[in-house]
Simulated assay, not measured.
Amino acid sequence: MSTTPLLRDWFAIVASSAPAAEFHGDRVGLEEYLEQREKSALTHHILLGARVNGTELVLGETRRGGASEASFNASAELSADGARFGWLLMSRSPQVRFAG
């Protein structure tokens, strides 16, 4: 079982088949962003993850055509039942590489 099931599912469902791009805003803005973005260009792969109390943290890389393009990290505070995000913070940089 994954130590970060909510973030694992986030990337499997929402981000693994679509490219990374900048986003900031509320839920409606996120839904609009997800609807308009290009599909199947850049995929996300979690390399390391941990759950600490009510927070999930992951390190990973984005790949284009199977080749590593950038690293990312994501942190998510979970709801009391662990089924939803209270907040979600992600960043991505082509200048940093994690050795998962």
Rank of each mutant, 00 (worst) to 15 (best):
M1Y: 08
S2V: 02
T4D: 03
L6N: 11
L6G: 08
L6S: 09
L7P: 03
R8G: 08
D9F: 01
D9C: 02
D9H: 11
D9S: 12
D9Y: 04
W10V: 06
W10I: 08
W10F: 14
W10G: 01
F11K: 00
A12D: 14
I13C: 10
V14C: 07
S16C: 07
S17R: 13
A18V: 07
A18K: 10
P19I: 06
P19Y: 09
A20R: 01
E22Q: 11
F23H: 07
H24R: 09
R27C: 12
V28E: 13
G29Q: 10
G29R: 02
G29T: 03
L30M: 15
L30C: 07
E31K: 12
E32L: 12
Y33E: 08
Y33K: 09
L34R: 12
E35L: 10
E35R: 15
Q36E: 14
Q36G: 15
K39S: 14
L42T: 12
L42M: 15
T43G: 15
H45A: 07
L47T: 15
L48H: 09
A50N: 08
R51K: 15
N53E: 14
G54I: 06
T55Q: 13
L57S: 06
L59M: 13
L59Y: 08
E61P: 05
E61C: 09
R63I: 00
G65E: 13
G65C: 11
S68E: 07
E69N: 09
F72V: 02
N73S: 14
N73E: 10
N73H: 13
A76H: 01
L78G: 02
L78H: 02
A80T: 11
A80Y: 06
A80M: 07
D81T: 06
D81Q: 04
G82K: 09
R84E: 14
R84S: 14
F85H: 00
W87L: 08
L88I: 05
L88V: 04
L89D: 07
M90P: 03
M90Q: 12
S91Q: 14
S93W: 00
R97K: 10
R97I: 04
A99S: 13
A99M: 12
A99G: 11
